[in-house]
Design a protein around this nucleic acid. Structure first.
Lengths: 302, 302
DNA sequence: ATACACTGTCGCATAAAACACAACAGTAAA
DNA sequence: TTTACTGTTGTGTTTTATGCGACAGTGTAT
């Protein structure tokens, strides 16, 4: 038996002093109201009403019970209302985790725009290149750059792609010579992006076919800016996402090499727990990020 | 769907971090716990748990909801406990209404004994000769002296009988003569008990047959002591319950007359609302009064 | 690495309840 | 007295609750 329903029936009967009135108001039959109240009385072991066929008066016990459960049920409704509001309104906090470089250079401006569009939403933006569990309750959204995880317990919302390129400083190329084929990379000092280090090699695409190329890795870091600085200083050939080295290439600090041998583009995706009921602010955020990066060709161009 | 049940399932799952654990504790199947939680989530439009098949963690929304409903449910349980306790324990207040004379002379000592037997029970004893509705919430118990009401919406618990007698002061009899037959009453000044005044006559029993006898009513009152004082002063023949005039007869202030023509004994009964669940203190009170008056022969004797 | 025990979820069948309707006895007002 | 309404109860039907079994997934111990 639905005790809450019985309580609501009881409250309505008490307020109106009539079973039939409560039945009309609740859209139920008189018998059902009667049965619910009787059940409540039996389960409590207390008579709640003194009823004649024409009058319904609260017992002392009924008065006490009514006075006790009224605020309780109000609190309960408040709790639900609060929850629903937090779920459906465009307010509250979004906790985002993203890698350092991409977060600083590309995510931050979009997030700031987002916050101006939805001023009631607060953002907690955590930038770090450490791998964090997107399923821990620490973050609502985790932005990842890399190959898909194919984790069935995780929603991977693909945002865009970012291409990578091989590049080096002009001074470096003057000193070591510009490589004409990837074979030469195993003789040249190479700078490796840490998150992708699986060994002393790079996987490159040549005419859409993947080929594993041995390299001479001298520096690896989980921070792309470190590698960019190293590359600009002429310390080696770097394989870096264009969003990191794009500006340096545009200003001539770095020069693309082996342009026919480009690494596969990396997936930029938002990871989050697959809740069947996602908070409105989160789905709005995902959509906002999606459209903001939809035509982000700067990511694809050197 | 029983929302309270679903909430309890949710709370148990949250506490144990496991659907199966909650199922074991609640004595239900895993599927039922799952269904209840899913139903709760759907009805709230919010995901309460982040679940993998091996871990169950509260969502932020779930944490908030749990924190909100926990005290609410506790309050609800408290309300029920309080109600049940008030119902089953021998404590609380009993509100009694009784007629003035009988209350003072016979009910009061029994009530005082009752209070010493059950010191946790408080009594509110209202003595008045006005007719009051036993169904109004003003009183739990109404003691009435008189013929049964045969009200189906009322429980009439018969306690005992009290006989009545015709009597007068010796001085009065010296002046007017002792009546030898009831016919003479229509010439003698008579004193009528107010609650029973239905006209200028008395209904008397002669050899177990009721006969209506015309009288000469000169004073009527709803208070028996008034009539007793008047009778002692020699102002007329009184028809009064023996519990009022018994002492005066014993001391010779009044003398019974027409002893072959006695009025029908009056019923002493407790009236109360027919609650299907009577508070323990009330049923105990009824039983106590019942046994206290069970052999109350003083009521039957002049 | 493999087996195993355990998890959350879902489909299915059944027992339990919620519910409306109709009928009944009682009551207040016309 | 009539009339319209009340609270209650029995009856049948629809809805829901519940257990069982199966499935895919996941830690643990061998």
């Amino acid at each position: 038996m639905d005790k809450l329903g019985a309580m609501r029936a009881f409250i309505n009967v008490a307020r109106q002093g009539s079973f039939a009135g409560a039945a009309r108001q609740l859209g139920l039959s008189r018998s059902q109201i009667n049965r619910q109240v009787v059940w409540l009385e039996d389960s409590l072991g207390v008579s709640l009403f003194n009823r004649t066929t024409r009058k319904v008066d609260l017992t002392h016990a009924g008065q006490a019970y009514l006075a006790n459960i009224l605020p309780v049920l109000e609190n309960l409704d408040d709790a639900e209302l609060q929850l629903r509001d937090n779920q459906q309104s465009l307010s509250g906090t979004i906790k985002i985790n993203a890698p350092m470089s991409f977060g600083l250079t590309h995510l931050t401006p979009v997030v700031l725009d987002f916050m101006q569009t939805y001023p009631q939403i607060q953002v907690q933006l955590d930038l770090s290149d450490e791998k964090r569990d997107p399923l821990s309750n620490q973050f609502d959204m985790t932005l990842r750059i890399g190959p898909p995880e194919n984790n069935p317990a995780l929603i991977e919302h693909d945002i865009t792609y970012t291409s990578r390129c091989l590049c080096a400083a002009p001074a470096f190329l003057q000193r070591y010579g510009t490589p004409g084929s990837p074979d030469e990379l195993k003789e040249l000092p190479c700078l490796q992006y840490g998150n992708l280090v699986h060994g002393n090699y790079w996987d490159l695409l040549y005419q859409n076919k993947s080929q594993r190329v041995r390299i001479n890795g001298v520096l690896s870091s989980n921070n792309g800016d470190v590698l960019r600085q190293a590359a600009i200083k002429g310390m080696g050939v770097a394989l870096l996402p264009t969003f990191i080295v794009g500006e340096a290439i545009a200003t001539g600090q770095l020069v693309p090499v082996l342009q026919a041998w480009q690494p596969a583009p990396l997936l930029v995706s938002l990871l989050y727990a697959p809740n069947r009921h996602m908070a409105m602010r989160l789905s709005v955020f995902v959509k906002y990020i999606q459209t903001a990066f939809e035509n982000a060709e700067f990511l694809l161009q050197g």
